[in-house]
Measured scan of single mutants.
Amino acid sequence: NITNLCPFDEVFNATRFASVYAWNRKRISNCVADYSVLYNFAPFFAFKCYGVSPTKLNDLCFTNVYADSFVIRGNEVSQIAPGQTGNIADYNYKLPDDFTGCVIAWNSNKLDSKVGGNYNYLYRLFRKSNLKPFERDISTEIYQAGNKPCNGVAGFNCYFPLRSYGFRPTYGVGHQPYRVVVLSFELLHAPATVCGPKKST
């Protein structure tokens, strides 16, 4: 009989979020998941679920829940969905086509923008091939755009693969920082350890 609540607040209220190319993952297990707390949290810009209804989450049990978190621009949030393409979905964070879970995003301009620009948040701009679902690539190898080998030196046709967002408070909404948490639900042939409040007695 599990009684402790799942530590969703640790994920959602973290002081610093990860850059999207180096997205953070927390495994959540052996706890009671009260999703209504999240669902009623006012400032969400997006709360979209795939393969599961957000209002039914509290009735369900899962083997594991993974909480992935990172920061992207407002106009990139739409790429955090199954079957998407674009710089983020291709080179930074890719969801599987059969994704079961929820994508939760909110504007973090007050936290993550600075006058003069916040350059701490990076994304991958160049990559030889697209990421596989949930693949994480933190390499900083110089990207070779031409035929000539770069030998690890940036220059003509040789690019550092990461780019900084440089968030400023005055940017338009599409270019403002958004914090994103992706909850993915794993249902294995194993005992369920993460259940909603109704199922955990």
Rank of each mutant, 00 (worst) to 15 (best):
L125S: 15
I138H: 09
G172L: 10
V103E: 00
V77L: 15
F160M: 14
H189D: 15
R168Q: 15
F12Y: 03
L60C: 08
A145I: 11
D59H: 10
I104V: 09
G146P: 07
N30T: 03
N24Y: 04
Y165Q: 04
S129P: 09
P197E: 12
A154K: 15
D90G: 04
H189Q: 13
R163Q: 14
R73G: 09
V37H: 10
C195M: 10
S36K: 12
E76Y: 00
D34H: 04
D34Y: 02
G196A: 10
E135Q: 10
C6T: 05
S200K: 13
Y123L: 06
L131N: 03
C6M: 04
E10A: 10
Y39W: 14
K94D: 01
T170E: 15
V77S: 05
Q176C: 02
V180S: 00
Y91L: 07
V181L: 04
T63I: 07
P149S: 15
H175A: 13
Q144Y: 05
K110I: 08
I88R: 02
C6F: 05
F134L: 07
S113M: 06
K148S: 12
S69L: 02
N75V: 08
V77P: 02
G83T: 05
T170V: 09
A67R: 01
R25L: 01
V71H: 00
V182H: 00
Y178F: 13
G51D: 03
G101T: 00
Y159L: 12
I2V: 13
Y66A: 04
K26I: 09
Q79L: 02
S164W: 06
S139E: 10
Y66M: 07
P149A: 13
L131T: 03
N157E: 14
R127L: 03
G155Y: 06
D137V: 00
R73S: 13
C31S: 06
L162T: 05
F12H: 01
Y123D: 05
G83Y: 08
A192H: 14
P54R: 13
V32E: 08
K148H: 12
F41G: 08
E186Q: 10
I142N: 08
L183A: 00
Y143P: 07
R73F: 05
C6G: 05
H189P: 14
G196R: 10
T63G: 09
Y35R: 05
V52N: 02
N87Y: 15
G51Q: 07
A192C: 10
F185H: 00
N58M: 07
V103W: 00
T193Y: 10
T63N: 12
C150G: 05
N1G: 08
Q79E: 07
C158E: 07
L38T: 02
L95M: 07
V71N: 01
A33P: 10
C49V: 00
Y143Q: 10
Q84T: 10
N1E: 10
W106I: 07
N1F: 05
S29V: 08
N130L: 11
A105Y: 08
N118W: 04
G196C: 08
D112P: 03
D97I: 09
N75C: 11
T140G: 11
I80S: 02
L125M: 15
A190G: 15
N118E: 12
Y143D: 12
N30Q: 06
I138S: 12
Y159A: 11
R16H: 15
C49S: 00
C6I: 02
P149E: 14
N120P: 11
F167T: 05
K114W: 09
F8M: 06
C61P: 09
T63H: 09
S164M: 07
S184W: 13
A33S: 08
N118K: 08
Y93F: 04
T3A: 07
D112V: 00
T3S: 12
F44V: 09
V153S: 15
V65T: 05
I2S: 14
A89N: 03
N107P: 08
Y21M: 05
R27G: 05
N1M: 07
K199Q: 14
I138R: 09
A145F: 11
S113G: 10
P169Y: 06
V20D: 04
T193E: 12
S164P: 12
S78E: 13
Y159G: 11
R16Y: 11
G155W: 07
S108C: 05
R127Y: 03
D98V: 06
T85M: 07
R136L: 06
R25H: 05
P191D: 14
P197K: 15
D59G: 09
I80W: 00
S200E: 13
L60Y: 15
N151G: 13
L187H: 10
I28A: 04
F99T: 00
L38R: 02
P161W: 01
W106N: 04
Y21F: 10
S19F: 01
S78K: 12
S53P: 08
C102F: 01
V32W: 09
K128E: 12
A105H: 06
L60P: 04
T3Q: 10
A154E: 14
W23C: 04
S53N: 15
V173A: 13
P177V: 03
F185K: 00
P96R: 00
N40Q: 14
L122C: 12
L187K: 14
D68A: 01
P96H: 01
F126K: 15
I2T: 13
C49R: 00
P82Q: 01
T55V: 09
I142G: 08
L60R: 09
Y171S: 15
C31F: 05
Q176N: 05
F160Q: 15
A89F: 01
S113I: 04
G174Q: 13
F156S: 15
P197H: 13
V182Y: 00
Q176T: 03
H175P: 04
V115Y: 11
P7Q: 10
N120T: 11
P133R: 01
T85K: 14
Y35S: 07
N4R: 13
N30S: 07
Y91R: 05
D112K: 00
S200N: 12
